[in-house]
């Protein structure tokens, strides 16, 4: 998902920058005509309609939806300064996994990275709460948990690993 997000963002940013450059150049050109306010209303409508479409499309399936406990594997992860503890070290591929995340001290962030260091999903670990997310691993291999919330001087050392193994059968 990240490359798509990057490309869309850069295109929109470049387009908006180009409009500014054009506007600065137009300081030498003619003054704005009477159509300007209609253009502005048009812009507001376009932004509103686009916003409604994107919002509905991106929220219709709730991004934090959890897999039902019946068909998911439950994995408990707890964090503390500065370690991660995972109660399952071998996770089968292709089966939804519910991660139940807790912390023993301050706030941490559980970020799951694949072997090429791409962030797959994350959730905050908040003192006094259990936070849950679901993820389904497609590829067997080794995965890492990195800390995504600043938690003190060894924040960058708060790393652990687990394996995803090919599903039997």
């Amino acid at each position: 998902m990240q490359p798509v997000v990057l490309i869309i963002s850069l295109i929109l940013m470049a387009a908006l920058s180009a409009v500014f450059v054009a506007a600065a150049r137009a300081s030498r050109g003619p003054a704005p005509g009477p159509g300007a306010s209609a253009k502005r209303s048009g812009l507001i409508w376009v932004m509103t309609i686009l916003g409604v479409i994107v919002s509905v499309a991106s929220l219709r399936d709730w991004p934090h939806a959890l897999a039902g406990t019946g068909d998911a594997l439950e994995v408990n992860v707890s964090g503390g300064q500065w370690w991660w503890d995972i109660d399952t070290t071998e996770i089968p591929a292709g089966k939804p996994v519910n991660f139940n995340v807790t912390t023993e001290d301050v706030t941490h962030g559980m970020g799951i990275y694949d072997s090429s260091l791409t962030l797959l999903t994350q959730v905050q670990a908040i003192p006094g709460y259990t936070t849950q997310i679901t993820y389904t691993f497609e590829e067997p291999g080794s995965y890492q948990i990195l800390c995504m919330e600043f938690c003190g001087v060894a924040h960058h050392d708060m790393v652990n690993e687990f394996e995803v193994i090919a599903a039997e059968g």
Partner: peptide, 17 residues
């Protein structure tokens, strides 16, 4: 974007600033 930035465009346009 539609108010602050757009107004800036209008003020600058043709202003010979």
């Amino acid at each position: 974007i539609a108010v602050t930035a757009f107004s800036t465009f209008l003020y600058v346009r043709g202003s010979r600033m």
